[in-house]
Nucleic acid binder design. Sequence first.
DNA 1: AAACATTCCTGCACGC
DNA 2: TGCGTGCAGGAATGTT
Length: 305
Amino acid sequence: MPELPEVETVRRMLAGAIPGRRVARARVSRKRLRTTSLASLPERLVGRTFASPRRTGKFLLLDLDGGVTLLSHLGMSGRWLYWRPGWNPDEALDHVHLKLVFEDCATLWFQDVRRFGMLRVVETAKLGKDASLRLLGPDPLAVPRDGAALRSAARGARTSIKTWLLDQRRIAGLGNIYASEVLFRARIDPRRRAGALAAEEWSRVATEIPAVLEESIARMGTTFSSYRTIWNEPGQYGEELLVYDRNGEPCRNCGTPVRRIVQNGRSTFFCPSCQRREGSSRQRRGARAPARRVQRQRSRRLSNH
DNA sequence: AAACATTCCTGCACGC
DNA sequence: TGCGTGCAGGAATGTT
């Protein structure tokens, strides 16, 4: 489940492994990853030396000398795995799409069972214009805690706050797990319209976003099924999840059964008791929408589930 | 065996 | 009526 904490964990580990290492040999699979063919990767990578890896949202930017960057996205099931003494995963590794052997025989594998991931070599100087990166929003670890920026970005948005948080053009890095976790901790009903949150609610969201992500990074991310670190270890944050994948289990705060709903075709988990608007008077005063529009909104929402 | 962590594309509906 | 934008839904794929 590579979301920001998992990608950041991989980035930090790669930062301790690949900088200064020069690619001696490269092999690719014949399969395509998402849309791109991998055929040209070996000739563009062999002979080059890795610098420090960077991350933008859920994308990994593996810079090499000579002005090129190996851009990668883990999709649903992508993994970067790194050789260590006494461990040679070659014999056990299916679905490897890129294998890089360095001059000192250290080895780096990109494995992706479902092939929703992405690998592409681009010129470092042109990264800013890359179609995948160009539209990405700010990094959630750097979002100001007052929530003002998020609030103005969401002005007028009619989609739900949960769906809004998943939009990588708004904030780049939250995925399905952490969107649910953030909203639980901020005590916000995931079905609320994004454009309708109050300033103080945005502030709670903006505070919880980096808090959850940092806590997860500290535990090497969440392994829901297939994510592994470069040393093939699972992440430990799954034990800390408050609502995700806990349908029917008691809320860790109040004991009410956690609910699962589907928004935009994706599961959302929340506590119906902890995550609701407190104080209906203010809410009523704020509701200015014409009756007709409210009606339409309601019927659309009902048809969703 | 229904559900799934990801992004991208299509087409609809709304509003100007 | 036409056009731009926002949003929902589906596709891609293999595993559990």
